[in-house]
């Protein structure tokens, strides 16, 4: 009884955590499903077919390819733009700091539907409504990822002891050497985290993408489309692979952290 009272919060917490994994179990299970009909979405039997022929459903793999391309480019673009801004915010003095903070905060506090519709309104107003597609999606994705990059990298930079850079200068390192040997290696985990976040935000986005995609189809749009008709089980294969990759990255990062956590304790 006493044990229960002391652990009740932890047990509830673990229960909530398990609840967040319920759909994942279903996704993994359904990736092995052998459906009797396209219209009935339930587990009918085990098969490896979905895994052996992931590209069988028409359009799935091309949508996936489009999504990966867009996400990679959006990650690259937003990580560069956001990292530069984070450095400016933490390390440099400039006029209009508070409006800059607002400009970075607002995209995170705006509902996606509003961001998506205003971008569409812009494209229509400037006569680009016919050119909606890959590039407009990419523009939108970079836009909404930048703020998250800034916030992540800024936190890392602000948490860094600025004495370290002064110590490097004191030890005969030029500003350039100081940046590449001290600042950048210490901020890099933050930049990497921001890039991963950008990738997953971009890869997963539906609402903004859907409004600005024209005839281009990304993976979420493909899923949305087939959800009305009948879902090919290969969608669950993709879901499972995404989950596995993210777990590998996150757990790998965590193990790496654990190995070096003591060593890096002072940096964070």
């Amino acid at each position: 009884m006493r044990w229960l009272r002391e652990h009740v919060v932890l047990i509830l917490g673990i229960a909530i955590l398990l609840y967040t994994f319920i759909p994942i179990f279903v996704v993994v299970l359904m990736s092995f499903n052998d459906p009797s009909s396209r219209l009935i979405y339930r587990f009918d039997g085990f098969t490896m077919d979905n895994w052996l022929h992931p590209c069988e459903p028409e359009g799935l793999c091309s949508a996936l390819g489009t999504s990966i391309q867009i996400s990679l480019l959006a990650t690259l673009g937003s990580t560069i733009l956001g990292t530069l801004m984070a450095f400016a915010l933490v390390r440099h003095d400039f006029l209009g700091r508070s409006s800059m903070n607002l400009l970075i905060f607002l995209p995170m506090a705006t509902p996606e539907i509003v961001m998506g519709s205003s971008l569409l309104a812009l494209f229509v107003a400037t006569g680009f409504s016919g050119q909606l597609g890959f590039w407009t999606i990419l523009i939108a994705h970079i836009m909404f990822c930048v703020s998250f990059v800034v916030v992540t990298v800024r936190a890392r930079l602000a948490g860094m002891d600025d004495n370290l850079e002064q110590a490097a200068m004191d030890l005969y390192a030029t500003p350039r050497e100081t940046f590449w040997r001290i600042t950048f290696p210490l901020v890099f985990p933050g930049i990497l985290g921001a890039a991963l976040l950008s990738f997953s935000l971009s890869f997963d986005d539906f609402i903004i993408t859907n409004l600005n995609a024209g005839n281009t189809t990304t993976f979420p749009m493909y899923v949305w489309g087939v959800a009305q008709r009948g879902i090919p089980m290969q969608v669950n294969v993709v879901g499972t692979v995404m989950f596995a990759i993210s777990v590998l990255i996150v757990v790998g990062g965590e193990l790496n952290n654990r190995r070096r956590s003591k060593a890096l304790a002072t940096a964070s």
Binding site: P220, V223, G239
Partner: peptide
């Protein structure tokens, strides 16, 4: 971790 799997795929689950 679960939220790296597509929002839509999880909602369909």
């Amino acid at each position: 971790a679960p939220f790296f799997t597509s929002f839509l795929v999880r909602t369909l689950a």
